[in-house]
Amino acid sequence: MTFGYAHAGWRGPRSLAPPAPPLFLLQPLLARIARAVARRHPEMFARLGIHQTSRFVIEPIGLPFVLYLQPAPRNPILRALPRHARPVCEARIAAPFLQLLRMIDGEADGDAVFFARDLVVSGDTEAVVSLRNAIDDLDGSLAASVAGVFGPPGKLALALLSRRAKRQTA
């Protein structure tokens, strides 16, 4: 089952016109992040089960773009899309960027964020629950691990993103 974000002529990121320059610059970085996570945490995919091919749109509130994720172990896709994009997806997850970061890192409880109404989930709830549980089984900080892929510039970027999200969600 897909969630109703499709509109005429739009069938996923492969059919996208070239993204705006800032997003265009982000794509290789995101692709590298997806490959690095898949390589470092292969055990994560077993928990995803049938949802390895599910498509997620993750909306970090406070950032000027959304993320498109398809967590297929051999060819994971992570791309940035303009906020107005409506790709076909099975589930959509929206939360303040900082909360998303804390949930990914095992520092915030997704259910609690949902109770507080800071997390909005729509579409295939089972896909979202599977993704949450798969990520939650990763030890340590996934965000820091990802930032580490890019060395000091990656860590600086993570710090800057966190700071910006803090300002915008304050």
Partner: peptide, 10 residues
């Protein structure tokens, strides 16, 4: 058991 490790830790 359905909650996150953040919940468990705290």
């Amino acid at each position: 058991r359905q909650r996150s490790r953040a919940y468990v830790k705290r």
